[in-house]
Amino acid sequence: MRASAVSPETPPAPTGPPLLGLRALTKRFTDPAGRERTVVADFELEVAPGEFCVLIGPSGCGKSTVLSMVAGLEQPSAGEVLVDKVPLAGTDPRTGFVFQQDAVFPWKTVLANVAAGPRFRGVGRREAARQAGDWITRVGLEGFEQHYPHQLSGGMRKRVALAQTFVNRPGLLLMDEPFSALDAQTRQIMAGELLALWESLGASVLFVTHDLEEAIALADRVVVLTARPAAVKREFVIDLPRPRAPREIRFLPRFAQLHEEIWTALSDEVHTAYAQATAAG
């Protein structure tokens, strides 16, 4: 039903959303004291084509590092990332990434920000502006095309970031706590809009958060990570109906039940992470 919202001029990518595989993914680095630290250890995960997979774990457990490696921004120390069974080398044009902090270009207008991806990919100026205008409308920012990011609210800047990423029609969408800097109300609204956009786009999603309610509201599957080094602890299939409205779904009894189950698995890791952090401090 939502798929009809895709404009006919921008046909979906010829190949559908990819299958993502993480095989024994490991990341070590040397800390300033010269000790070797393992941030991610033997991380195994598979994300099915078109699946919305959420990684949840305590703060500082290495979730973001996993995502950086999948994006090709960081090299794994061992193991590999497979996109449609092909090992990843550097960044992949099918990948879209939404950052935790503001990463839009502050010196470009909203229109130029959203048009940047197509321009980088060799689309002509006029066509890029048309595609950008289309996505600006879809994230509800029409009338703000000529504004600069500093003139917008945090939520609006996040919409710019979403449009900027979606205009490239990514098959694989990576999101690193994208809404964590927003206030609670805005976060819920953005989660709803993200779901609507994703349902029309049909990408495979790997979404990192430490907010359990957000995780359940969005995901097909929630993967609970251990405290550092990050590894998969348990997985939970979220069998809530779609399309979902994140604000209302919280009141379903099944939501509360899942929340309880996952929190039991998560809370041990949160306590461990807290102990690690206080010991390190």
Partner: peptide, 14 residues
């Protein structure tokens, strides 16, 4: 800002 550079690269910038 390293994030803005990473963003540009992922958007397709050489």
């Amino acid at each position: 800002d390293a994030n803005v550079i990473a963003n540009a690269r992922l958007l397709g910038a050489g």
